[in-house]
Design a protein around this nucleic acid. Structure first.
Lengths: 337, 337
DNA sequence: CTGAAAGCGCTTACAG
DNA sequence: CTGAAAGCGCTTACAG
């Protein structure tokens, strides 16, 4: 491979001049610049990443920590991964992917070795050990999700509390007073995932305030069990007039389950939900819902991290993205008893 | 951050001794080794990745090129990404993720700068421009998928031709003579994706050899259109006794579509398919099928690349993973007319 | 507007 | 069994 020395020799200048021409950090005489440009072309020169990182202490790589919990929903996760990657490239960064098996040690490894300039953490838990590793690191980090103790941590997320509240208020405004709430798989709560808890808390608090009855059904991650649970719950609570489904997997089976019981939407049962936008494009989920935009969240997170890398000392930011309901006509006035 | 010099000073040895203790590349007196170990502990030393890469010309990073075609199926793609990441870590490598927007230039960027030791390419097309960039690179690469011209390229993939043939033969053996073949979204064929074409070709060739009639239905990527197409095709070809569905998105809607038409599986219609294993765990797809194991393919690809990185000159390998049918009882003798 | 030189933090032949 | 030194390929103060 051609080095900066080869380019310098070919262009008849010093290595420092080539370097400055590359970085634009000092004015170069136009003709000199042209000669250098040509030399670069001819020799096919690209600066060595390791050498540059060593000299500048900057790698232009962001670490992305993704646990890939098996119970989580692939299209959602993928949306974040893709969003982070594309946004990072827009700002000149590459993305190093660190997945589950390693857990905590992965963060230490990529930060302590100086492999990355910063870290984005996905699937933040309410009490997340990994945040300790992030605080120890000399590189900045941004969380996608909100932990219990967010002191001095930059966080970005959809406002899942507002989302839960909005959906309950939406049903309440239509006149619904008894709602079936299909939650995420229990494992996700056990894993202490912030968004799962915040959404559920919003639903239970808001419904309590508004005097609504909410029957919770723990959404399974296993398809057959899930369908059975939904059916059983509909039998158990004949008073419910609406279904609030926060379970991506279940949404796909829902049309079938409801049809099996001859329940028309929205005449017999209103259905509202929350799911990733990618999901709606891939499957038939004809329900009024809040669409979580991984792209928007990822983009904000990457921007924030890039800013932090440049100016580490500004105070931590918490950015909640306001949810928006897309009306697909699956909610209406409750059926008359 | 502590450098190797700090460790050397603390342990009272030279930097080279610390380096050799780290690499194990020459014997070190046990007591010396212990002192060094302790110094590393106390100072919290981790070797700088850039410096090491510069000195050794090895980054321990594999590039993973993933186009993330929107028509493709998230669980499938995610399976490969996750599989590559985990397998790479097992061998000591990190993974740098390069996604669509950049396309071709991304490969040049990460190889020419020496950022990666090798590249894994996903979603290989039959005629894939990116392979040219890979051939130009000084680092080795492995394709997940088989291009038309695989000269001197390492390739790993599920044997999609064998898969298509197996499923057709399976139906033929049961006595089916007219089959509806629901293909992947047309866009994937237009994108020239190898696996889409190979599977389809296997289906059409095998059925021709066996004297079977195959009606193709172009699977849409848009959910509503897809369901309509399936229904229309079932009406159009009343002679079909079996459905061969190679369309992940459609599989989820299928139970509903078939129920709408009062078609029982397998009494009225046999259904066989091919889908990623992750998919079956997430959704209810009760069909006899070949399960594509992204994990297995990814693991082979990573191993192959690691070998290439160590010994670049051995001849190129093509590794096709034999498909296996999982019987879920959705195929039976054809209904009597 | 440009060059010579030091330095980033490692590894590894060379020497003992 | 260990050390001193050169070198990997960049960047950037220092000097002119």
């Amino acid at each position: 491979m051609a080095t900066i020395g080869d380019v310098a020799k070919y262009a008849g200048v010093s290595r420092s001049t080539v370097s400055y021409a590359l970085s634009g950090n000092r004015p170069i005489k136009p003709e000199t610049r042209d000669r250098i440009q040509q030399a670069i072309q001819v020799l096919g020169f690209t600066a060595n990443a390791g050498a540059r990182a060593l000299a500048t202490s900057k790698t232009w790589i962001m670490g992305l920590i993704v646990p890939f919990t098996p119970e989580e929903f692939a299209p959602a996760t993928l949306g974040y991964v893709l969003g982070v990657s594309e946004s990072a490239r827009d700002l000149g960064y590459d993305v190093l992917l660190v997945t589950r098996k390693e857990g905590d040690s992965g963060i230490a490894r990529i930060t302590e070795s100086g492999l990355v300039d910063g870290v984005i953490l996905l699937d933040v838990k309410r009490h997340d050990d990994r945040i300790h590793s992030l605080r120890m690191a000399r590189q900045p980090s941004v969380l996608i999700g909100i932990p219990e103790d967010e002191t001095s941590m930059d966080c970005v997320d959809l406002d899942f509390f507002a989302a839960g509240r909005m959906l309950v208020e939406h049903l309440h405004a239509l006149g619904h007073r008894a709602v079936l709430f299909l939650t995420l798989p229990e494992q996700l709560f056990e894993q202490d995932l912030g968004y799962a808890w915040r959404f559920r808390e919003a639903v239970s608090r808001t419904s309590a305030q508004l005097g609504m009855t909410v029957h919770e059904v723990a959404g399974d991650s296993e398809p057959e069990a899930r369908a059975r649970e939904i059916g059983a719950a509909l039998d158990r609570y004949p008073d419910v007039t609406a279904l609030l489904a926060h379970n991506d997997g279940a949404l796909v089976d829902l049309p079938m389950v409801l049809q099996d019981r001859n329940l028309r939407v929205p005449q017999d049962l209103s259905v509202v939900s929350l799911f990733p936008e990618r999901f709606g494009r891939m499957f038939s989920v004809p329900y009024t819902a809040i669409e979580t935009s991984a792209t928007a969240v990822a983009e904000r997170a990457v921007r924030l991290l890039a800013q932090r890398i440049e100016r580490p000392e500004t105070p931590a930011i918490r950015e909640l993205i306001a949810p928006v309901i897309i009306d697909r006509g699956s909610s209406a006035l409750p059926r008359q008893p």
